[in-house]
Amino acid sequence: MQIDDADRRMLRHLQADPAISTAELAERAGLAPATCWRRLEKLRAAGVLKGVQAVIDWARLGYAVRVSLRVTIDKTDPRAFDEIIAAAREVPEVTEIQTFLGRVDLRLDILARDMAHYQELFRTRILTLPHIADLEALVHVADIKTDEALPL
C-alpha cells in the first residue's frame, strides 16, 4: 500500500499517542474528521494499522523476572518447528515467540514472578518442549530503549 504525507502525519501522531481520539488526530494531522476516519479504515484494511494495545508494566503486577531463551531445535524431524511452536504457545508465561535464521532457531520471552517461579517453569514447562537441541537463557536486567516508533 502506498501512503502519502497525510497518512504519515496520522501515523506519527498515533505512534506518539495511540489513545488519541479520531477528532484530535484529524486536527493534529490537518484533516477533516471524516477524511481522517476513512484514511484510518484504509490503513487498517491494508494491515498497516494492526490495532492498539495496552502496555502493561508486569513488574508492578508481581512479574519481576523476564528471561529470553534462545532455542536451537533438533531439526532431524521435519515437524520440529511446528511442534515446538505449538507446545510453547500453550505455556501462558511465554509472552513472545520469534523464529530466526542462523544458529538460533527460536527466541522465547518468558515472564515469571520470581526466580523460584522461573525455575519451576523451566523444569516443568520449558525443558519438556519437544525437539530442543540447545538452550541459552538471557535474564533481563534493564530496559534501555523500548520505543517501537520509527520516523515517518
Rank of each mutant, 00 (worst) to 15 (best):
V91G: 08
R44S: 04
K50A: 10
I126Q: 08
A29N: 01
E90S: 12
V94E: 02
V52L: 02
P78K: 12
A149F: 12
E96M: 08
Q15G: 03
Q53D: 05
D17Y: 00
A112W: 06
I20W: 07
A86T: 13
G51M: 04
L111G: 11
P33V: 00
T99G: 15
D4I: 02
D114K: 00
G51R: 03
L150R: 14
D5A: 06
D109V: 11
L25E: 01
L106C: 15
K42V: 02
K50F: 05
M115D: 12
D17P: 00
V65N: 02
T124F: 01
R103V: 13
L108Y: 05
G102H: 13
V65S: 05
R79T: 13
A59F: 11
P92L: 09
V139G: 08
D4N: 06
L127I: 05
H13E: 06
L150T: 10
P18Y: 03
R8Q: 07
R107T: 15
G62V: 05
R125W: 02
Q119D: 14
Y63M: 03
Q15A: 05
R60P: 00
A64D: 10
L121D: 01
L150D: 07
W37V: 01
D74V: 14
V104T: 14
A87C: 15
T22L: 03
M1F: 05
A34Q: 08
D114L: 01
